[in-house]
């Protein structure tokens, strides 16, 4: 009797299963504070002047400055709901990268040909970003070989290639997520043998809202334009 009830419940449930996902919008928190801290840690939610020293209040959280709009535009990569493992063993969605200018490249760690050079290109770009902008830019490597490139291997790759720091992120997805993401970047790749891939050499720049603003194609190319674009999106 009990089991029949259970079956009944189960079959009823399966009838109504739906795959709809709802997007939650996080509201951004914007806080202003007196640069002199005349009133200690007191914060204001609107622009204005300090009642004590009359200096203009300053935005205190840089991240929140970039999240003024809670809406994600139609062209934003933050519309992708896939989840990814980072080299630090965390699981994130792309949306969690929102608020910074993103410089992204797709590589795999067993690559002997182009990837070390692509990594070098990324390092060169990072070095040329002026210090005051560094906090607003995140450099992201996405592995096209999610089967082999575990978070541990990605971490090792980061250490070996001197790209292991706060501003560098490595992502391991699933085969399907990676294929989808490559399609967003218009990156092409194909597995040639178990540890070898052919792939497009493209470095992509996204503004803090996740919209593609620039792509640098090829290896060892002049990165002036890319750097200019990065600085431009940070300043927006």
């Amino acid at each position: 009797m009990k089991s029949i009830k259970f079956i009944l419940l189960f079959t009823t449930l399966t009838l109504f299963v739906s795959c709809d996902k709802k997007n939650k919008d996080e509201t951004a928190k914007i806080e202003y504070q007196c640069p002199m801290k005349c009133e200690g840690e007191k914060v204001y939610s609107e622009k204005g002047t300090c009642p004590v020293c009359e200096m203009d209040l300053r935005l205190i959280s840089k991240a929140s400055k970039k999240v003024l709009s809670t809406e994600i535009s139609e062209e934003s990569i933050f519309n992708l709901t896939s989840s990814w493992n980072t080299e630090e063993g965390k699981t994130i969605t792309l949306k969690e990268l929102k608020g910074k200018t993103l410089v992204m490249v797709m590589v795999y760690t067993t690559c002997k040909a182009a990837c070390p050079r692509l990594t070098g290109d990324m390092r060169n770009i990072e070095q040329k970003i002026p210090a005051e902008y560094k906090e607003d830019v995140q450099f992201v490597f996405i592995s096209i070989d999610p089967e082999n490139d575990t978070p541990e291997k990605l971490k090792q790759f980061a250490v070996d290639n001197y790209v292991d720091g706060e501003q560098w992120t490595f992502l391991q997805g699933t085969e399907s997520n990676v294929r989808e993401f490559a399609n967003v970047l218009a990156v092409k790749y194909k597995q040639i043998s178990p540890l070898d891939f052919s792939h497009s050499n493209i470095i992509s720049v996204f503004n803090p809202g996740g919209e593609l603003v620039h792509q640098q194609e090829g290896l060892g190319v002049d990165n002036k334009e890319t750097i200019a674009k990065i600085i431009e999106t940070v300043n927006q």
Binding site: A113, A114, R179, K188, K190
Partner: peptide, 24 residues
Amino acid sequence: DFNSVLITGESRKDVGKDSNLFCG
């Protein structure tokens, strides 16, 4: 995986198989 086809007829810099744009 249509994007595993590394030949293109589009106007990117890869005329034929450009070893610079496509690794391997």
